Computed example of a mutant assay.
Amino acid sequence: MRHLDEYSSKRISYRRMTVCDIPAVVRMRVQQLKDEGAQADFELKPYLTEFYERNLETGLYISWLAVCGEEIVAASGMSFTEKPPYYKKSNWKDRYSIQYVYSGKAQKKRDCTGSIKESNR
């Protein structure tokens, strides 16, 4: 993945992830985990592929992608879950977790207008 400075003069658009994006998002997710220091002790790609295929179809996972031309330059992901009812929360059906927001390893990044944004790390 290139540094986002390379995209500062180009237009970045945003769209929802589709099944066609799974291979690219899987590569980004593996790179994110490595950047965060995870040890690759088994092949994660098939499990990620199956997760995205299953959960995109059911709507339990959504992702928004930042795209410059044909290249995905950043991704976010959110998983939705429903937990059994319990006493402390009256609305147990509204459960979600932000899974990740990733745009590469660099500590500072530039958006498409060239202004500096703090890293997500």
Score class of each variant (00 low, 15 high):
Gln32Thr: 01
Thr81Glu: 10
Tyr87Met: 12
Leu56Ser: 04
Cys20Asp: 15
Gly77Ala: 11
Gly69Ser: 06
Ile116Phe: 05
Ile72Asp: 02
Asp94Cys: 12
Cys68Asp: 06
Asp5Glu: 10
Val26Thr: 11
Leu48Met: 09
Gly77Trp: 07
Tyr14Cys: 15
Val101Asp: 04
Phe42Leu: 07
Thr81Asp: 06
Asn55Thr: 05
Ser9Met: 13
Thr113Asn: 04
Arg121Gln: 09
Tyr100Glu: 11
Lys93Thr: 14
Thr113Ile: 08
Ile12Gly: 00
Ala24Ile: 08
Lys88His: 08
Lys117Tyr: 06
Asp41Met: 08
Pro85Arg: 10
Ile62Leu: 09
Glu118Ala: 10
Glu36Trp: 05
Leu4Ala: 06
Thr49Ala: 06
Cys68Arg: 02
Glu36Thr: 04
Leu60Gln: 08
Lys34His: 05
Ser13Asp: 14
Thr49Pro: 00
Gln31Ile: 08
Pro84Lys: 14
Ala38Ser: 11
Glu36Phe: 09
Ala106Ser: 12
Ser9Asn: 15
Arg121Phe: 14
Asp35Gly: 07
Thr18Ile: 05
Tyr61Val: 01
Arg15Tyr: 06
Arg16Ile: 01
Gly37Pro: 01
Ala40Thr: 04
Gln99Arg: 11
Pro23Trp: 02
Asp35Thr: 08
Ile72Trp: 02
Val25Thr: 01
Gly69Tyr: 07
Asp5Gln: 06
Gly69Gln: 04
Arg11Ala: 14
Arg54Asn: 15
Tyr86Gly: 09
Gln32His: 03
Glu50Thr: 07
Lys117Arg: 08
Gln99His: 11
Met1Ala: 13
Ser115Asn: 08
Met1Thr: 13
Met17Lys: 05
Gln32Gly: 05
Thr58Lys: 06
Phe51Pro: 01
Gln31Asp: 09
Cys20Tyr: 11
Arg2Tyr: 13
Thr81Trp: 09
Lys89Tyr: 12
Pro46Ile: 12
Glu6His: 08
Ser13Ile: 15
Tyr100Lys: 01
Glu43His: 05
Ser9Cys: 10
Gly77Arg: 02
Lys117Thr: 07
Glu82Tyr: 12
Lys117Ser: 00
Arg29Val: 06
Arg54Thr: 15
Pro84Phe: 13
Val26His: 02
Tyr61Ser: 01
Lys108Asn: 12
Gly37Trp: 04
Cys20Glu: 15
Lys93Gly: 15
Cys112Ser: 13
Gly69His: 05
Arg2Pro: 10
Gln99Val: 15
Leu65Met: 07
Ser63Phe: 08
Ile62His: 08
Gly104Cys: 10
Glu6Arg: 06
Ala75Lys: 05
Gly114Trp: 04
Ser90Cys: 06
Lys10Val: 01
Gly77Asp: 09
Lys83Ala: 15
Gly59Asp: 03
Arg11Tyr: 02
Ile12Asn: 02
